[in-house]
């Protein structure tokens, strides 16, 4: 694999959570313009990988390296990773009582723009932008007035993650089970939102349990994460095969 050219290049990544080894040597490269899917049984380390990439405290890297657009990702603070263009859509979006959704989105966008040396948006410019994005995602503007994720339904929280992604326009997105909890229509809307962001400059890592999502967001590669390692990689057809057979065979082999 031509890792030096990849947008995201993970090599031998090992990490512990509470001193428990969870990632045990992950090699994975995603070139710009590609969408890779990660599948794997519960507890195999998928979310942990997302958190390690975004720099969450308490996830200790014990080996390996991650290069992101030529930079040493692991040496960066979480906010700098975001400014560099990395975005994680959380499996379990966090509630922020007392923090208005509009304020949150605007602060995030302006923080990222500041770091990139771009001009900040004023309240009017921001509102115009966010309204347009919300319309595409079929979200009611009333969501802007509410506290971030507080009282949101499971599906609304996932849509709110995609809204943040659409507003921040990151170069690389990690979607952690964004499809779970979405109804059939919402799944299509969210997938359309994600597809709209696809482009030659953008990379994506889509973590999912279901082939269903991958029918909408067709991946370039599919990887199976099992016991903290990538045990198999293949084309989109691998997702179909896993859906049929499950992880049993792979688990025995591992």
């Amino acid at each position: 694999m031509a890792t030096s050219e990849a947008m995201l290049a993970i090599e031998g990544l090992a990490a512990t959570v509470d001193e428990k080894p969870v990632l045990k040597g992950i090699d994975l490269s995603v070139p710009a313009g590609e969408v890779h899917a990660i599948m794997g049984p519960n507890g195999s380390g998928k979310s942990t990988l997302g958190y390690v990439l975004s720099g969450r405290e308490g996830y200790d890297v014990t080996g390996g390296s991650v290069s992101f657009r030529g930079q040493d990702l692991l040496a960066m603070e979480p906010e700098d990773r975001a400014a560099a263009g990395l975005f994680l859509a959380f499996q379990y979006p966090v509630e922020l009582p007392g923090v208005g959704n509009a304020n949150f989105l605007r602060q995030a966008l302006n923080a990222v723009r500041r770091k990139r040396g771009e001009a900040e948006l004023d309240a009017m410019q921001f509102l115009k932008l966010v309204r347009a994005k919300m319309k595409v995602l079929g979200m009611s503007e009333e969501m802007l007035k509410r506290f971030v994720n507080v009282g949101f339904s499971g599906g609304e929280k996932k849509r709110n993650e995609i809204l943040q992604m659409a507003v921040l326009e990151p170069a690389f997105c990690v979607l952690d089970e964004t499809d779970s909890g979405l109804d059939i229509d919402a799944l299509k809307i969210v997938a359309d939102g994600v597809n709209a962001l696809r482009g030659p400059e953008r990379g994506m890592l889509v973590i999912t349990h279901y082939q269903r999502l991958l029918a909408y967001i067709v991946p370039d590669r599919v990887h199976v994460l099992l016991g903290g390692r990538i045990v198999r990689s293949g084309g989109p057809e691998l997702a179909l095969e896993l859906e049929e057979k499950g992880y049993g065979e792979l688990q025995q082999a591992a």
């Binding site: 603070e77 959380f90 949150f104 923080a111």
Partner: peptide
Amino acid sequence: ANQLFYLRSRGIP
């Protein structure tokens, strides 16, 4: 810590 990380992961210092 969870909330703090969520905000930082969105680029907020």
